[in-house]
Design a protein around this nucleic acid. Structure first.
Lengths: 331, 331
DNA sequence: CACCTCTATGTTAACGAAAACATCTATCTG
DNA sequence: CAGATAGATGTTTTCGTTAACATAGAGGTG
C-alpha cells in the first residue's frame, strides 16, 4: 500500500515531484527522475486508481447489466462490448439480473453512486418509464429493446423484416403451407418475428391459417411439442418457420425421431443462428443477428457519450439469412 | 452530483449531521433527521461510493478474469460467482482475456491499483510463478487450474477419477475395445481425462492399443475427424470415450450420417455435460462437472479471505456421471 | 450544587492523488 | 544589467466521505 507520500519521503522530494514522475508531466530533473523511479520500483508503488477517480470524478468503469450471462446470446453481446471498452481504457463492471426487474433496478441504481461512468442495459425487463429516470441521472444505453422515449439512447434491430425474408425464402422454394412455431407472445422480439411471418404470407397472397400457428415457450422442448401439435393434423404444412433455433432444433429432432427426413419431408427455417444450428444434420437454415456487433456498437456509442471526440465506426446492423441444408425446393 | 456539503448547506447543519442521517448512525434529533431526509430527497442525493471506497480503502469490487465468456463453461462459473458475491454486497468487475497471457496479465495488473478487493482467475494461462507474484500483492483465487505453489489459493477438480469412472462404465457394459477421442495434449484437464482412460483399462487388465487413441483439437469437427480415423480400421472399437462432449457430438453425427446407429452399433461417452448433449438423439451419456458450484465456492472462498468471519458452505465438488442413452450393454 | 451522562451537533484530519498556484535559480534578451 | 523566461521544485487546496475528537445543553445522581 505504498503511497506517493512514502515515495516522496524516501526520495527526499515533495509528493508533487513524485506525481510528476509518475504521470510523466511537467518539469523534472533527469537525475531526480531517475532516483524517484528507482524508489518507485523498490517500494513496488502503483498509483491508487480510487484516489484518482475521486479527483477526476470519473472511474473509467462501465456497468453492463444482462438478464442471463449463461445465455450465449448475451455472452456474445457482452464480449463485443467489453473488447471495445477495454481497447479504450475502460473496464466493465458486470452484473446479471437473472431477468428480474427488481434485481435489474437494484443493480442499475448502484450506478448512481458514481462508481461507473455509464450504464449499458441489455434487453432489460423494466418498464420503459424507468429508462427515462435512469437516463436523466447517468449516461445510459439500452440495447436490444425498442424504446419509444426520445430521451433514451438505444440500439434495436427490428426482427420483422428478416423474419419476413425467412418466410419469403420458404415461399420462393415453392412452399405455400407454412407453419409457425411461434414461441411466447409476450416478448417483443418474438412478436416482431411473427409479424414478419404474417407480412410475408400477406405479400404473397397466402391466406393465414390460424391452425398453422403454434404458440409455446422458448425452449427445445417447445419445438418437440410443436411437432406433436402439427403431426396430429390431417393437412400439414410442408415447411415451418420457428421463431428461434432452439425450437427449430427440438422440432427437427422429434421429426427425425418419428422417421421423417429433413428437408425431403419437411423444410424448416430457424432464427438466431446459435452455435448448435450449424452442427446438426442437416445444418439449419436460419437468420443470423449481429450480436457481437451490437455489443461493439453499444460500447462505441457509450464512449462517444462520454467523450464526443470518439469516432463511432459504421456498423450495418442487419439480420442476415444463413442458408444451409434444412429447406427443400419443391417447385 | 449532489454532495453532503450541499445538503448540509441547504438544511443549515454540518456535513457530519447529514452523514449521520445517511449512514443512520450516532445521535440525530428526530426533527433534524426529518428535515435532512427531505432535503436529501429533494436534491436526489446519493452517497459517492468512490469517496467512501477511498476512505475505507476497499471498493467492494472483485475482479473476475476468464479466457472466454462466450464459452458456456466459463459463463456458468461466472454466474455462480457473481450471484454469491452480489448477495454479500460485492460487485463483479469482469474481464475477458481472450485466452491470451498478455491480456490476462495486463488485466490482473490493474487490480494492483486497488480498484478491487480481490481477483479470481478462471482457468488462467499464465505461468505458475505469476500467481505467486499476484498472490503476494492482492487476495487471489485461481479456479480450475492445478497449482503446485502452496502460497496460491485455488480450486481444482482432478478430472482423472471421473474419466476413469466413465470408462469403467463402458467396461461394465461389456465393452473391451474402447477408443479414445483424446483432444489436445497440451491442456492439463484433458490430459487428466486421458489418464483416467488409461487407468481404467489398466485396472481391468485391458492392454492399451495405441491405435485406439486419437488426438486432435477440441471442437465438433475434431469428433468428425475422429470418426473418419476409426472407420478406416479393420478391427474397430465397440465403444468410445470422448474427452469432451463437443467431440462426442461430432463423432455421433458423423456416425449417424454414415448409417450407423447409436448405441446399437457404437457406444459413446462424453465429458462436460454441455447443454446440447441432453438434446441430441440419443441423449449423450457423459460426465457432469459442477461449474456453477465451482464458481460459487470461489466466491465464498474469496469472501472469507476478505473477512474471516464469513461462513463457507460445504460444496462437494465432484464430477458426476450422467447416464443417458448413448451406451449399449453388450454382455 | 458539583459532577456525570446522555443527547445533539460541530470541527479537524485523513484517505491518495493532482490541479492550481507559488517560489526560486539559472539563463537569455534587448 | 533590468526584466523576461524556462526549468525545477514546493505548498495549498480539492475531490466527498467519515473516523476521531471537541463542544455544549439537558437531565439525573449523590
Amino acid at each position: 500500500m505504498t503511497t506517493l507520500k512514502e515515495i516522496a519521503k524516501r526520495a527526499n522530494v515533495s509528493v508533487m515531484t513524485v506525481s510528476r514522475v509518475v504521470k510523466n508531466s511537467g518539469y523534472v530533473n533527469a537525475e531526480t527522475r531517475k532516483l524517484i523511479e528507482a524508489v518507485i520500483k523498490e517500494l513496488d508503488y502503483r498509483p491508487n486508481e480510487i484516489a484518482r477517480s475521486l479527483h477526476r470524478s470519473s472511474t473509467k468503469n462501465i456497468l453492463l447489466i444482462v438478464p442471463d450471462i449463461e445465455n450465449p446470446f448475451f455472452a456474445e453481446m457482452i464480449k463485443g462490448t467489453t473488447t471495445v471498452l477495454r481497447q479504450h481504457g475502460y473496464q466493465s463492471i458486470f452484473a446479471d439480473s437473472d431477468g428480474e426487474i427488481g434485481n435489474e433496478k437494484e443493480i442499475a441504481e448502484r450506478a448512481l453512486s458514481r462508481i461507473v461512468d455509464g450504464v449499458i442495459l441489455y434487453c432489460p425487463r423494466a418498464e420503459s418509464a424507468y429508462f427515462d429516470f435512469l437516463s436523466a441521472r447517468v449516461p445510459l444505453l439500452v440495447v436490444d429493446r425498442r424504446i419509444t422515449s426520445h430521451a433514451v439512447d438505444h440500439i434495436y434491430i427490428d426482427n420483422k423484416p428478416s423474419a419476413e425474408a425467412a418466410v419469403d425464402y420458404l415461399i420462393a422454394n415453392g412452399h405455400r403451407d407454412i407453419g409457425l412455431i411461434g414461441g411466447p407472445q409476450n416478448v417483443l422480439a418474438n412478436l416482431r418475428r411473427k409479424s414478419g411471418y404474417l407480412a410475408s404470407l400477406k405479400a404473397h397472397g397466402i391466406p393465414v391459417n390460424d391452425q398453422f400457428m403454434f404458440f409455446c415457450g422458448f425452449e427445445f422442448e417447445d419445438g418437440v411439442s410443436a411437432f406433436e401439435y402439427f403431426s396430429q393434423m390431417e393437412h400439414r404444412p410442408t415447411a415451418y418457420f420457428a421463431t428461434n433455433d432452439l425450437m427449430a432444433l427440438g422440432f427437427i429432432q422429434q421429426a427425425q425421431e418419428k422417421g421423417l427426413a429433413i428437408p425431403s419431408d419437411i423444410s424448416v427455417v430457424g432464427f438466431d443462428n446459435i452455435a448448435m444450428s450449424r452442427l446438426i444434420s442437416p445444418a439449419l437454415t436460419t437468420v443470423d443477428n449481429p450480436r457481437h456487433d451490437m455489443g461493439a456498437l453499444a460500447a462505441f456509442r457509450m464512449l462517444k457519450k462520454l467523450d464526443p471526440t470518439v469516432e463511432v465506426p459504421q456498423f450495418s446492423l442487419t439480420n442476415r439469412m444463413v442458408i444451409r441444408g434444412s429447406v427443400r425446393n419443391i417447385t
